[in-house]
Design a binder for these strands. Structure first.
Length: 461
RNA sequence: GGCCCGGUGGCAGAGUGGUUAUGCAGAGGACUGCAAAUCCUUGUACGUCGGUUCGAUUCCGGCCCGGGCCUCCA
C-alpha cells in the first residue's frame, strides 16, 4: 500500500516515502486560541485527521506521531483578553478546552502531542540564539529579526523571490529591519503583555518560531509531513523553513508539505458582517458532529469548498442512508471486516475522500441487495469498517436516529413510542384512518415511520 | 503587478485521450392497506477560442469568469 500526496514543494502528487516507517511524523499548525473555532479552522483538522488515520492504517497505530500545536501567545489573544476583562490564561485555557471538545465532536482523533507555545519558550529562545550565532538573525532595538538575505534559498515553498516580496509589501517597513523582508523572532513586551526573560530582554516570541521549535522538539530536525491551510504557505511556512533549516543546517524541514483549500460559507467569504460566520460550537447545536465532518469530507481537501446549510442537509441525508443500512442488522453480531480495498485506494490517492464516499454508497447498495442474511451481514460489516476508517459511523444507529437538536422542545422518545404503539393497535384493528392520523401527527413533529417485518421503526428526520 | 488554485449534468462532487462515477433532486415501475425504506429503469455534463491527435471533457496555448496569497488569516 503506497500513499500519494500532493506536495506543495513540487506542486506535484508524489509517492509518500517515510524517513522511518516505524516512526512516521506529521505536524499540523493548530489554532490560536482567542476565539471559538470556525468552520474554516475545522477543515484542516478533519482533512489531516483523515491523513493521520490513513497513516495509522498503513504504518500501524504505534508508528505514527502527530503533533498539532496550540498557539496561546499572540497579540490577538492579548487584545481579546483585555477587551473581555479576563486573564490571558483563562481565555486561552477556556478556548483550548472548547476547541478540543469541538474537534472531538467532529470525530477528529486527538493528536499524539498537543504542545502549547507558552510551554516551549525555552526551546524558542535557544533556537533564536542559534540563529544569531550562525549569522541568520540579529538583535535590534529590543527585537530579534531573521535575516532573510542570509538564506540563499528563501522562498522555495511559496515560489517567490525577495524582490517580489518587497515589491508586494503592503505594510510599512519597521525602522529596525535591515531588510524589508526580515521577520520577527522575538519582540519586547511591556507590563500589559505576557513576556519572558531572554538574552535580548523581557519579551515574547514571534509567531513563526513556535512551530519551528515545537516540531523540532517532538519530531526532530527533519520530519515527514507538515500540514496546514493554504494561506499559511506564505509567510508562515516559508519562515518556518527558513528558521528550521538555518538553525539545523538541514536541506529540508519536512519532506512533504500538504495544504488544504479555503472554505467559503453560503457562497461567500466567511465574515461576521455577512452573517455567515459559522463556529463549530454553534453548528453542533443543530447538527451532529458527524454531519459536519461528512460535509467537510465530501469535497477534496485541496479544492475550494463551499460550506452551507444545504450541504449539511445533504450530508445528513447521506448519513441517514448509511445508518439505515447499519440499523437493519439481522444477525447477532457483525463479522470482523477490513475496510474496502477500493475505498482505501481512493484515500491513499492524495486523500480522495469524495471518491471514497462514493464507494461507501456502492457498499451500502451492495448491503441492501445482499440475497442472504450472511452475505448481508458481511456487506454491512464491510461498510462499517470502511466508514470507521474515515471517522464515520461511530454512533449506534438507534441513537443516531433519535438525536434531536431541540431535545425537550419536541416530542420525547416516550411520547413517540406511545404514539407508535397506538398506531400499531389501530393497524391491527384495520383502522387505517386512525393509523394514518397518528402517522401524520408524528410526521408534523418530524418523525418518520417505517413499517417493517420486525415491527415499526421511527426516526427523527 | 507577481505567484498559485479552480470553472463538470437541476444541485453536490469524482474521474478519464475513445467505454455507467457516486449521492441528492426529477420521471416511470416493483414492494406496501397507504406510506417510509429498499430494489429496478431513466433524462440532462464537462467555461471559451484555437492547437496536438484517427479521436479531447481529459494534453498544450490564448482568452473569459471565480477564488487565494503577496509580513503574523485554516
Amino acid at each position: 500500500m503506497t500513499i500519494k500526496l500532493h506536495n506543495t514543494l513540487t506542486r506535484q502528487k508524489e509517492t509518500f516515502e517515510p524517513i522511518d516507517p516505524a516512526n512516521v511524523r506529521l505536524y499540523a499548525c493548530g489554532p490560536t486560541v482567542y476565539d471559538y473555532a470556525h468552520i474554516g479552522n475545522a477543515r484542516p483538522v478533519v482533512a489531516f485527521d483523515m491523513l493521520f488515520r490513513l497513516l495509522r492504517l498503513v504504518y500501524g497505530e504505534e508508528h505514527v506521531l502527530y503533533v498539532r500545536n496550540i498557539t496561546d501567545i499572540d497579540d490577538k489573544i492579548n487584545a481579546r483578553a483585555k477587551e473581555s476583562g479576563i486573564s490571558i490564561r483563562e481565555l486561552t485555557e477556556g478556548t483550548a478546552e472548547v476547541y478540543r471538545a469541538d474537534m472531538a465532536a467532529l470525530e477528529a482523533l486527538p493528536p499524539s502531542v498537543e504542545p502549547r507555545a507558552t510551554e516551549n519558550i525555552a526551546g524558542m529562545i535557544e533556537m533564536i540564539g542559534t540563529l544569531i550565532d550562525k549569522g541568520h538573525a540579529y538583535a535590534a532595538d529590543g527585537h530579534v529579526l531573521f535575516s532573510v538575505p542570509s538564506m540563499e534559498k528563501y522562498g522555495g515553498l511559496s515560489r517567490r523571490n525577495r524582490d517580489e516580496l518587497i515589491a508586494g509589501a503592503r505594510v510599512e517597513v519597521a525602522p529596525y529591519k535591515k531588510d524589508p523582508a526580515d521577520f520577527i523572532l522575538w519582540k519586547p513586551s511591556d507590563d500589559e503583555t505576557p513576556g519572558w526573560e531572554s538574552p535580548w530582554g523581557y519579551g515574547r516570541p514571534g509567531w513563526h518560531i513556535e512551530c519551528s521549535a515545537m516540531s523540532a522538539r517532538y519530531l526532530g530536525e527533519e520530519f515527514d509531513i507538515h500540514a496546514g491551510g493554504l494561506d499559511l504557505i506564505f509567510p508562515h511556512h516559508e519562515n518556518e523553513i527558513a528558521q528550521s533549516c538555518c538553525a539545523h543546517d538541514t536541506e529540508r524541514m519536512a519532506r512533504y508539505w500538504v495544504h488544504n483549500g479555503f472554505v467559503t460559507v453560503e457562497g461567500e467569504k466567511m465574515a461576521k458582517s455577512v452573517g455567515n460566520f459559522y463556529t463549530v460550537n454553534d453548528l453542533l447545536k443543530d447538527w451532529q458532529g458527524e454531519v459536519i465532518r461528512y460535509h467537510l469530507l465530501s469535497t477534496h481537501y485541496r479544492a475550494p469548498m463551499d460550506f452551507s446549510k444545504e450541504g449539511l442537509k445533504e450530508a445528513k441525508a447521506a448519513l441517514d442512508r448509511f445508518y439505515l443500512v447499519l440499523r437493519n442488522v439481522e444477525v447477532d453480531e457483525l463479522p470482523d471486516s477490513k475496510p474496502d480495498r477500493h475505498l482505501v485506494d481512493a484515500l491513499a490517492d492524495d486523500l480522495n475522500t469524495p471518491l471514497a464516499i462514493a464507494r461507501l454508497h456502492v457498499l451500502a447498495t451492495e448491503a441492501n441487495k445482499a440475497p442472504t442474511r450472511r452475505k448481508k451481514a458481511k456487506a454491512q460489516a464491510k461498510l462499517k469498517a470502511s466508514g470507521e476508517l474515515m471517522g464515520l459511523f461511530g454512533s449506534d444507529p438507534d441513537a443516531w436516529f433519535r438525536w434531536s437538536s431541540d431535545a425537550g422542545e419536541s416530542l420525547s422518545d416516550a411520547d413517540i413510542e406511545a404514539l407508535v404503539a397506538r398506531r400499531i393497535e389501530a393497524r391491527k384493528e384495520k383502522d387505517f384512518a386512525e393509523a394514518d392520523r397518528v402517522r401524520d401527527q408524528l410526521a408534523e413533529a418530524g418523525i418518520v415511520l417505517e413499517d417493517g417485518a420486525g415491527g415499526t421503526a421511527w426516526r427523527r428526520g
